[in-house]
Design a protein around this nucleic acid. Sequence first.
DNA 1: AACGATAATGTTAGTCACTAACATAATCGG
DNA 2: CCGATTATGTTAGTGACTAACATTATCGTT
Lengths: 194, 194
Amino acid sequence: MLVTNIIVVPTPKTIRTRALLQETATRLFAEQGYDATTVDQIARTAGVSHMTFFRHFATKDAVILDDGFDPTIAAAVAATPSTLPPATRVCTGLRAALARIELPDQELVRQRVRIASQHPALRIGMYANTEATREALVAVLVEDGGEEFAARVAAAAVLAALTVALQEWCQSDDELPMSTCLNAALAVVEGAGS
Amino acid sequence: MLVTNIIVVPTPKTIRTRALLQETATRLFAEQGYDATTVDQIARTAGVSHMTFFRHFATKDAVILDDGFDPTIAAAVAATPSTLPPATRVCTGLRAALARIELPDQELVRQRVRIASQHPALRIGMYANTEATREALVAVLVEDGGEEFAARVAAAAVLAALTVALQEWCQSDDELPMSTCLNAALAVVEGAGS
DNA sequence: AACGATAATGTTAGTCACTAACATAATCGG
DNA sequence: CCGATTATGTTAGTGACTAACATTATCGTT
């Protein structure tokens, strides 16, 4: 039997280099802009070669777009009652998942989304990431007996609303909580039937 | 006063070259795949230089992704009653707009979406295109007195559902009409409130 | 502490999408 | 037919990303 989905435990050095590259890149992007910063410069500033960069991040934009929230969101959606319509499940799960993100982490997210929202290439990267999140949710919903097409539509629509909510939130001042933007966005989606 | 949105009337030669490049690219992509086809090859096969290609299409993927449906969709949404919730307006407008596409054109759309759906880079390009369509709809909804954030959320969510519907439709046989997939997708979104 | 296996990194050379600058040729109104 | 505009070509370049192979860290074991 072929073993798939082998979980590779990252070595300490890998974690360090990866974090160093992300911090370096985020700082350089903020200081001089995304286009004016080359992968080579990020790598050299972090004291590594450009090959090491691409071994940690598949693309230039991944260095700022990669987050690890998919499992959290998927688990939260899985925890909702499978009797609800798929779109409602995704909405409810999202609210629960994002409420679980710690405040300091929220500030990091806000900073990254702020940078990403300002550049077309990075916004496109966000949409690309959404596809992976969407399929993770489809897997959860289908496992619970949901129909695949409906699951995919529900996940895609609600995640699109989330993306807009994040872009709105990242531009606001530090007081506005993420949940306010998210709830406002989900209310719009949930009002589509009237 | 600064005049924006100047409408440039394309010269006959421009239209011909553009169409030739699109046909050539579509054929080459279908024959040998997207990655195995270089921009240079498309240009040479069409009898032009690669600079001419980029003067007609901003990126490699634009040659197969560019369509001119945004004005049609925007007009159809504008024609819906402005008293309805924004998400409902976009749903209704979409149904009307896509019903207006002629059957032969639908076959072309299907062929292109089919190619685009199979390649990550092209799917991402579809998401990027959605952003322009979304903002066109936001402009329509806001003009009618809608709130901008709600308009953007509604447009984003419904267009995400449309994208999923198109991907489902393009894989089906020639008998299944686009409207069937679209209606199924919109029903999921409209069921989010229950 | 020396050893060997494994994982991380470096070097080099290359492909290809995409751009800037400038030169040339096709087109079209008068 | 001519002059102005528009489409196209040439060339040289940048930068993201990859393949192949060599080198160095890291770490458990003896």
